[in-house]
Simulated assay, not measured.
Amino acid sequence: MSSVQLKKQILCALFATLTSIFSQILLPLPFTPVPINLATLAIFLSAGLLEVKYSVLSQILYLILGFIGLPVFAQFTSGPSILLGPTGGYLIGYVLIALICSFLIQQRKKQTAVALPLPVIFMIGIFFCYTAGTLWYMYSTHTQLLPSLFLCVFPFLPGDILKIITATILVKKLDRISI
Rank of each mutant, 00 (worst) to 15 (best):
V4S: 13
K7V: 01
K8E: 14
I10S: 13
L11I: 01
C12M: 15
C12P: 03
L14W: 10
T17Y: 03
T19R: 05
S20C: 10
L26W: 00
L27K: 05
P28D: 06
L29N: 11
F31K: 04
T32H: 12
I36G: 09
I36W: 09
F44L: 15
A47R: 03
A47Y: 07
E51F: 02
V52G: 01
K53Q: 13
Y54S: 06
S55Y: 00
S55M: 01
V56K: 01
V56Q: 02
L57M: 14
Q59V: 02
L61N: 04
L63N: 10
L63H: 09
F67M: 12
F67E: 00
I68N: 02
G69A: 00
L70F: 14
P71L: 00
A74G: 12
A74Q: 08
A74F: 09
L84T: 14
P86C: 02
P86N: 03
T87W: 01
G93M: 04
G93N: 08
G93F: 08
V95S: 04
C101A: 14
C101V: 06
F103W: 14
Q106A: 13
K109W: 03
Q111H: 13
Q111M: 06
A113T: 12
V114P: 00
V114H: 09
I121T: 07
F127L: 15
C129W: 00
Y130Q: 12
Y130E: 12
G133N: 09
T134P: 11
L135N: 05
Y137L: 15
Y139H: 12
T141A: 05
Q144G: 10
L145D: 10
L145K: 09
L146M: 15
L146W: 15
P147W: 11
V153Q: 04
V153F: 12
F154E: 00
F156W: 11
P158Y: 01
G159D: 09
D160A: 05
I161M: 12
I161G: 14
I161Y: 07
L162W: 04
I164Y: 03
I165E: 00
I169A: 11
I169F: 14
I169K: 11
V171G: 07
V171R: 01
K173C: 02
I177V: 15
I177M: 13
I179C: 06
I179R: 06
